[in-house]
Write a protein that binds this DNA or RNA. Structure first.
Lengths: 162, 162
DNA sequence: TCTATTTTTTATCATTTGTTAAATGATTTC
DNA sequence: GAAATCATTTAACAAATGATAAAAAATAGA
């Protein structure tokens, strides 16, 4: 089912059980959590990417993240409950769900390794290389937090790289 | 199928396609990759944990990690190929594989968030809290690299915390 | 266009972490 | 048990990052 939401819409809220998962047809989104005062963005998704509150999707528990739409978005919506029913009934869909989780896992593992292997400058360079459009569509404060540094530190890196 | 390996055994090698996945019945292991000269440990597994070269398991591609056994180990071995056959034939097993990937994904995502949210001191404190036995079974240089810092930096943190 | 607001950059200083080298502790091997 | 090897800590200095404040640039709205 296709749905539209405006820029700024909060699709998921932390500490809620989310009933749906989404796929992005058009637009861009971020997931973030709170650490004391400040938000920390740890995920971006754009066209073709899934939006899932993993804790809700996997074990029907409260999630730890907000998801905010950063542009006007067109999404496909799927009911988690319906998917779980289908997983039990249809082996093709069960294997689709398996593949889906596996591919997300590889993405997450790669990101983990990059956070451990590379310093902030290298991570910024890698982001520009692998996802240049992100820089054009998302404000730098979110990107800094995604890279695990402050915005001020990102500014310094950008000034040096020029 | 149950197999034993001695401490120090290299179970997986980077840039190879691994044909098996394992579960740890007894012992402890680490996964690491190389960055220029030095190894970086990014995963530990102990009793009950799976040992999987994700790239091999998911897409039959060369992995990016070595896995070394840090104690004499007893493992269960499963052939990846056989599992993929079963996934196509048996919906129960397909859903087991789905759950398996999903739970690993949540672990990975949590770790990612911790790396981004917490400084080295906090990550060390969290490790002590969540996995105190690791400190007793694994040498500090591996733990430092798992925490994303040098061993010297970990020593300083330990000296301060005392 | 002009103003108000938000975003990004710059500057300064404190803190953390990295690097190199050396000292101390612990473990293994003969 | 002494020598050799490996693991851990300490020291000194350099580099990177954080915190705070302020300036500059960009954006949004009237």
């Amino acid at each position: 089912m296709e749905i539209k939401f405006p820029k700024g819409h909060i699709l998921f809220e932390a500490d809620k059980i989310e009933k749906n998962i989404y796929f992005i047809k058009k637009g861009i989104a971020r997931a973030y959590s709170y650490s004391e005062e400040n938000q920390i963005t740890f995920w971006f998704g754009k066209e073709g990417d899934p939006i899932v509150s993993m804790k809700s999707y996997v074990s029907n528990e409260k999630g730890y993240e907000d998801v905010e739409l950063l542009e006007d978005c067109v999404l496909y919506e799927l009911k988690t409950e319906k998917m779980h029913t289908l997983y039990e009934q249809d082996i093709q869909i069960a294997n689709w769900g398996r593949k889906f989780a596996e591919l997300e896992l590889i993405k997450s593992e790669k990101r983990l390794i990059s956070l451990q292997f590379e310093n902030a400058t290298q991570r910024y360079a890698a982001l520009i290389k692998n996802n240049p459009s992100l820089l054009l569509r998302v404000q730098l404060s979110y990107i800094a937090s995604y890279l695990g540094i402050t915005q001020i530190s990102l500014s310094r890196i950008r000034a040096k790289v020029k």
